[in-house]
């Protein structure tokens, strides 16, 4: 983008003011603040967990199993008698890492395959489309269980790679249809007939105009991935205790919902806030980058 700003010095302020305007709006500030706080949680978990005096997620006392809020324990205790607040703070890291890494992997695969299928059509389209259908038809959980069972180490990274590799097909279909509709537009045909290289046409003319629906789906899928991690964990093939994640806590809490709902509710609230913040941020960014809003 550097050469563009150099070419049109007059236009640069126009664009920046639009971005600044978008950044000042509450639809950007609120989710950015929420997300910033969650990222701070995952970087300095001990500091935030210790805010109420009981910062060790593994300092558990079975005597207070599933108790409600108490002084120094604002969110109460889980079944093992551990502090829920400390666990939620420590769980942020693995959940956010899984959500982001798996989504980035999935979207990257989807963009490459979807663009191949949508732009070139023909054989490439046939191969990619059939491959997509196979992956869609194949039960995702079964695949994940098989792979994760054969992988010895189940760290947040390996779990997110598996989630990403199994999570691309829907996004790839969206990329394919979006690319297809853009590639038939007159300005793309004009670029083709000018003799521009295929690579330039795809990167400058097709993808920038095809990816905004994909961006929205990707932000939504971050939340879906965090939830998927929790269902894998619930089935015993995701992260393993003593790892701490919202998925593990939700899985554990769901078994005691009738008697101790707070064990389920608190990590779920954090999950919901994360998902909402990412979606709102994605939408705000999309709007800010759309030239139609730059005027």
């Amino acid at each position: 983008m550097l050469d563009i700003t150099a070419l049109e010095p007059v236009a640069a302020p126009v664009r920046r003011s639009a971005l600044r305007r978008a950044v000042r709006h509450w639809t950007f500030i609120a989710p950015a603040a929420a997300l910033g706080l969650l990222v701070a949680f995952s970087i300095f978990p001990s500091y935030f967990a210790g805010l109420f005096g009981n910062g060790d997620p593994r300092a558990c006392d079975l005597g207070s199993s599933a108790d409600g809020a108490a002084p120094g324990h604002p969110f109460g205790f889980d079944v093992q008698g551990c502090d829920v607040w400390a666990n939620v703070v420590f769980g942020a890291r693995s959940s956010i890492v899984v959500g982001l890494v798996a989504t980035v992997i999935g979207v990257a695969i989807a963009i490459v395959l979807g663009t191949l299928a949508g732009y070139f059509g023909g054989v490439a389209d046939q191969v990619v489309s059939r491959l997509t259908e196979v992956f869609l038809g194949f039960p995702f959980l079964l695949g994940a269980i098989v792979v994760l069972n054969s992988v010895g180490d189940r760290s947040p990274l390996s779990v997110s790679v598996v989630l990403g590799v199994f999570g691309w097909p829907l996004t790839a279909r969206l990329v394919r249809s979006s690319v297809r509709s853009v590639r038939g537009l007159d300005y793309v045909v004009a670029a083709t007939t000018m003799g521009l290289t295929t690579r330039r046409i795809i990167t400058r003319h097709v993808l920038p105009n095809a990816l905004s629906p994909v961006l929205i789906l990707a932000t939504i899928s971050i939340g879906a991935v965090i939830v998927a991690e929790s269902s894998l964990t619930y089935l015993g093939v995701g992260l393993q205790a003593p790892a701490i994640s919202w998925g593990l806590q939700i899985a554990a809490g769901s078994r005691h919902f009738q008697t101790a709902p707070h064990i389920l509710i608190w990590p779920s609230v954090f999950l919901a806030v994360t998902v909402l913040a990412v979606i709102m941020l994605g939408e705000a960014l999309r709007a800010a980058l759309d030239p139609k809003n730059a005027a």
Binding site: D186, Y187, A191, N209, P291
Partner: peptide, 9 residues
């Protein structure tokens, strides 16, 4: 409506 790339000045 489609003769120009909407993201190009």
């Amino acid at each position: 409506a489609t003769s120009l790339n909407p993201r190009f000045r």
